[in-house]
Every structure is written in structure tokens, then in C-alpha cells.
Design a protein around this nucleic acid. Structure first.
Lengths: 109, 109
DNA sequence: TCAGCTATTCGGTGTTGCTATGTACCAGTA
DNA sequence: TACTGGTACATAGCAACACCGAATAGCTGA
């Protein structure tokens, strides 16, 4: 979409991915494809992989290598308890921000 | 609040400031104080000033130097037509992101 | 004089997403 | 066999942005 989205994704993309993993385990390629489907047209693959590495190193997800019929093995990520807690914190922060912005938008009319 | 908010503010803080300026002209110190009032407890002053310089250089705001009774002169910023257009674009992008996130939050329950 | 509030500026840092590229596995096809 | 294309992951270099810390400067009251 553009620079605006890119900057806004900083900080939120991580939450988005965690939220996806909260629904079901998934692997990088799949997540990227799904996000593109959702309209995040220009999310780079590298971005998701780097992000997954980060949240893995922080201990928010568990990883399992699963062979694929169609290519190299998949790294399937699933949210663990720590990730769940972090995701809740993310939603609280998001709510805070969204409320303030909604107020600003109303006030600006 | 913490690192989470800091990262989320990337990209949105700019829109927040523009939205404030859409309501009325304002200067840096004032904006910072107002944001702190609103609960953005740890927004650094330097951050706002740097942001104001940026949006000025991009031609989104007009600037006027106004003497203060209590200190050095204030740089009062006001949103111009270009800034108004940019703000609308910001709201569109924000809506897009907020909708996706809201869907994710619902789906995760 | 000096502390404290108002007001702005700036250099350096860390995090993050993007770009571009490379690696690797597999199926279909000419 | 060689080539194309889809699947799947990794990484080095870059730019943008918010933070931190310190500096500068004007004014007021103790």
C-alpha cells in the first residue's frame, strides 16, 4: 500500500502474527500468503521470517519442523503460554491506542 | 507504558499530531503536555519536536513564531491543505489496519 | 544568584519493516 | 536432461522512527 502502512506495521505486525498463531499453528510462507490475502499486499516474505525468528528467540512461540510434500520442510510455529500472555498485553496496548485515535477522529469532525 | 506502545507509535504518532493540529494550531511543548495528559505517559519531548520538524519539511504544516510570556518564543504549527489531505490518507490507512486487527481479535476468541 | 518552569534543538541508539538476493526441495514439461 | 515455476526459509544492508540524554535559552520568584 505505501509508506504509511509500513510505518504503522512497526509494532503491530508482531501482534498480528501472534494473533494468527493464537488461532492455529502456522508456518512463515503460509502466514505471508494469508496476510497478502487480507490486503496487506506488500508485506515482504523476509519480514515475516525475521519476525518469526525474533518471537522465537524471545520464547513466545514453540517451533516444530514438519516435512512438506511440495518443498523444503516447514517450520510450524505455535503460541505458548508466554506468547499468550504477551498477546494479551498487546491487545491492551492496542485498545489504548485505538481509543485515543478514535477520540481524535471524532473530535476532528 | 513500555516498549509495546513505543513500537506501535511508529507511524501513528505522526497521525496523532496531525489530528491534533487539525483541531487547532499548537506548539511542541503544548502538544507534548496534552499527550501526557491523555495517557501517553512516556512520550519524550524530543520525539515531538523531531516529528514537527519532519512534517514541516514535508510541507504538511505552516509555522509561525509567536512570543511567549513565560519563555522563549513558541513555534506554532497549523495544518495546511496538503496536511489535511495527508491526514485523510492517514485515517484511511488506520481504518484498514484497525479493521483487520479487530477481525483478528474477534476470531481469536 | 539560583532553582525551576517554559520551550526548542540535536547527536547517538535500538527496533523494525523493506529490498534484494541466495539457498533448497520438488513437480511438470519440452 | 535441462528448464521453469511454485514452495519454503534465511540474511545482509538500508531507511524510518521513537527514545535518551544533554544542551541552550528566556523568564519568574525565592
Amino acid at each position: 500500500m505505501g509508506k504509511l502502512v509500513t510505518e504503522m506495521l512497526k509494532g503491530t505486525l508482531e501482534g498480528i502474527v501472534l494473533a494468527i498463531l493464537a488461532g492455529r499453528p502456522a508456518y512463515g510462507y503460509e502466514i505471508t500468503a494469508w496476510l497478502r490475502d487480507q490486503g496487506f499486499s506488500d508485506i515482504a516474505e523476509g519480514t515475516i521470517y525475521a519476525l518469526l525468528v525474533r518471537i522465537e528467540q524471545r520464547g513466545l512461540v514453540d517451533v516444530e519442523k514438519v516435512p512438506s510434500e511440495k518443498g523444503p520442510p516447514r517450520k510450524v510455529y505455535s503460541l505458548n503460554a508466554q506468547g499468550q500472555a504477551y498477546l494479551e498485553e498487546f491487545w491492551r496496548t492496542w485498545s489504548f491506542l485505538a481509543e485515543r485515535l478514535e477520540q481524535l477522529r471524532e473530535g476532528g469532525k
